[in-house]
Amino acid sequence: MPNSEKATAPDPLIQLIVFRLGQEEYGIRIEQVKEVTLTPEIARMPKTPSFVKGIANLRGDIITVVDLEERFQLREAAEVAEEAAAHTYTMAIEAKDYTIGVVVREVPQPLSVPQSAIEQTPDFIQEANIHDKYIEGIARVGDRIIVVLDMLKLLTPSEIMQLTAPAAS
């Protein structure tokens, strides 16, 4: 039908920043990423879950830095050992009213994908450790499969602090 042809014709490109967590590739929409930098010195915060690496000074702003591999237990045992040696990068991501740092081990790369390449999440993905409510979709680019995350949902204060023991009162 001519109508359906018309609807599929404009296929906007979506700019993603792609990074690795464990063995998989993940992507975030580029507008959610403020900058990528070598991970600055991080001060560990007591009383936070272990995937919250701590706080760091990013050009005078104090930001919280999290490790999503640890959050979703995506790191292979062999990699855990070499973790200390490798230097890492931090993506500064703009959440609703604050900036947060996400540590990755390889330089994140930009990638443009057509909107149509992003598919809704199939149910089987729930087997993965990342709960599907953070997943915006799955992008297929050639033989690559990129999980597109909705960072704003992932980085709400309640999500970040969910493993924290209630503070003593």
């Binding site: 915060m45 007591p46 104090i62 919280t64 980085l155």
Partner: peptide, 15 residues
């Protein structure tokens, strides 16, 4: 800064 501002043990940070 958020979201760690809920941890009341720390009054803030300084550089």
């Amino acid at each position: 800064s958020k979201p760690l501002d809920t941890i009341d043990l720390f009054g803030g940070v300084t550089l």
